[in-house]
């Protein structure tokens, strides 16, 4: 890009818990985040930050295919927290950090509160820019029990456990599958969370193939993502913004600059993008940034900050 054009380009940088992002688009966890090569490609394609697929304590193959099925306005997925061994994951993360020119968010999960703390400690040695605690995967209830993120008390205990094991900023990723997300947000903020990601996938939902009368996903159920859950995500972010002071990464159904702006106006400081890649491919990051800039130009906004929480 020519230098004079760069100069004219509106600054859409934002910050999360003191870390600056060149733009508010973040690769959400679980999408194109298995390998360093893939994460770096997304960073190079224009994302403001990248999130790894959740790193777990032991190697897991996840569920048998199909693990993904599209539905009108979104998709269901139940990949089942597949991940390589912890050593392999840490090696990959180290490599990603060495090569990335944008902040790297290391998503992690544990099977117990204690294990979340242990995972945080080990991952912190590699020094990612953020930890993100996945306390909200909706697909592993049969194996791991109810997600920690469904109760304020367990959400807080996981948060506290991680904060006692690391000095890195911690993002806690919340589930929308609760009766009052404000309570959960308050609980994790009080327990020391530095930021909140909202929301993880919704449901779970189910798709049954009617010719065979068999659920398509091998796990039978999977989390719903995509435009179908955007209004829920916007409402959750709006409520969380009214409840806590810490910054929010708004995630759920963002496909366009207008979607991103809506999420910012609900109170998000940055937005996560995942399922949108299904429709617009990886150029979605740079395109959404361009669309945000165009909107700001035409509507007379000079800084991204002016959009954040504007709907309140």
């Amino acid at each position: 890009m020519k230098e004079n054009k760069l100069k004219k380009m509106k600054d859409i940088s934002t910050s999360l818990a003191g870390v600056k992002l060149r733009n508010p688009t973040i690769l959400a966890s679980g999408i194109l985040g298995i390998t360093t090569a893939s994460l770096i490609r997304i960073a190079n394609s224009g994302a403001g930050a990248i999130t790894t697929k959740s790193i777990g304590p032991v190697k897991r193959e996840g569920y048998v295919n199909p693990v993904i099925v599209e539905v009108p306005c979104g998709m269901l997925n139940a990949v089942g927290l597949a991940c390589p061994s912890l050593d392999d994951s840490l090696g990959g993360l180290k490599d990603t950090l060495r090569k990335a020119d944008v902040p790297v968010i290391a998503s992690l999960y544990g099977r117990t509160v204690k294990e979340f703390g242990e995972m945080a400690e080990k991952i912190s040695e590699v020094k990612p820019d953020f930890l993100e605690a996945n306390i909200s995967c909706p697909n592993i209830e049969n194996e791991f029990g109810k997600p920690f993120g469904t109760e304020p008390e367990t959400s807080a205990r996981v948060t506290e456990g991680i904060k006692n094991s690391t000095k890195l900023p911690l993002i806690v990723k919340l589930t929308p599958n609760v009766s009052d997300i404000k309570e959960i947000a308050k609980a994790v903020e009080s327990a020391g969370a530095d930021a909140i990601s909202a929301i993880n996938s919704y449901g779970p939902g189910m798709v049954i193939n009617i010719e065979t009368a068999i659920p398509v996903l091998s796990n039978k159920v999977g989390g719903l993502s995509g435009p179908a859950i955007k209004p829920i995500a916007v409402r959750c972010v709006y409520e969380i913004h009214e409840t806590v002071e810490i910054p929010i990464i708004g995630i759920g159904g963002i496909q366009t600059g207008r979607d991103a702006i809506e999420m910012l106006m609900a109170g998000a400081a940055a937005v996560g993008i995942g399922t949108g890649i299904m429709k617009r491919d990886i150029k979605i990051f740079s395109e959404i940034c361009e669309e945000i800039r165009n909107f700001m130009n035409s509507e007379g906004y000079s800084k991204l900050n002016e959009l954040i929480g504007k709907a309140h």
Partner: peptide, 14 residues
């Protein structure tokens, strides 16, 4: 369909 990242090639990410 290009979203899960399972089949990406090192080091290009294709």
């Amino acid at each position: 369909m290009g979203i899960c990242g399972q089949c990406c090639i090192d080091p290009t990410g294709l």
